[in-house]
Design a protein around this nucleic acid. Structure first.
Length: 221
DNA sequence: AAGCCATGCAACCGCCGGTCA
DNA sequence: ATGACCGGCGGTTGCATGGCT
């Protein structure tokens, strides 16, 4: 903690010749020009080529979280919040993975949002949740029963946690979440789940969401 | 008006995995 | 095979700001 104190503060703060703390508009401009010329990556050479006295990591973070084109700034929409809640229920704190489903949002932003907004809400509505859970469980059970045919390759001795995860994603794909108009085709939630633990129908459900995502981003902020 | 407190967010750190010489 | 380097990721910190007393 005390270590952090001497890092941030004055924007002129330096450490071994490296600048730390808030970025100035001039630094932003230098970084932007560097990326325009050299593209993303090779962050370690930014300081050499651009004259920035920032470490590569710092440059990368600044670019990805703030300067990169196409970033969506401002409040999360209720739709985005719901997506975050559902994906977090599935992946946990895999912020970068979750961010891939929210174009224009960064993992840092989502992480911050989760900690400040959603976690707080969950805490405050804990009592309400307790009463809601039995209903959710029942609905989840119904969705699983309906969407995963008996003859598919479902792992039989599935651990309870996995069942919970599958339930969450299945619900995400269900019509409860009509704003999932276009499920990004890039990523499949295979990281936590054995390849053959998903039924063919579930996988095709996911890919069936392709081509509809645009609708979400037209939602007014 | 001033002080305190809670909240939001930008930015840093350490760890880890991938790549390459 | 291995060590150095780099980038990605999640966790954490502290500043800025706004609301409350």
């Amino acid at each position: 903690m005390s270590g952090m104190m001497n890092l941030v503060g004055s924007s002129d703060q330096e450490n071994d010749g490296w600048r730390k703390g808030p970025w100035t508009p001039q630094e932003d401009q230098l970084l932007t020009e560097y990326v325009k010329l050299h593209g993303e990556g090779r962050w370690s050479s930014v300081s050499k080529c651009s004259g920035l006295k920032r470490k590569g990591k710092s440059c990368r973070l600044r670019w990805l979280n703030y300067l990169r084109p196409g970033l969506r700034r401002g409040h999360m929409t209720p739709e985005e919040e719901n997506i975050i809640v559902e994906l977090h229920a599935f992946w946990g704190n895999k912020w970068s993975t979750i961010a891939r489903y929210l174009p224009g949002r960064t993992d840092n932003e989502i992480k911050n949002y989760w900690r400040t907004h959603i976690k707080k809400e969950k805490k405050s509505s804990k009592n309400q949740e307790k009463r809601r859970i039995p209903l959710e469980k029942k609905r989840d059970q119904e969705v699983i029963t309906n969407s995963v045919p008996q003859e598919s390759h479902v792992v039989i001795d599935e651990p309870p946690l996995l069942m919970k995860q599958k339930s969450s994603l299945t619900r995400l794909l269900s019509m409860d979440f009509q704003y999932y108009n276009n499920f990004p085709p890039v990523l499949m939630p295979q990281e936590n789940i054995a390849e053959n633990s998903w039924s063919d129908s579930t996988c095709s459900s996911i890919f069936a969401m392709e081509g509809l995502w645009d609708g979400l981003w037209n939602v007014d902020e």
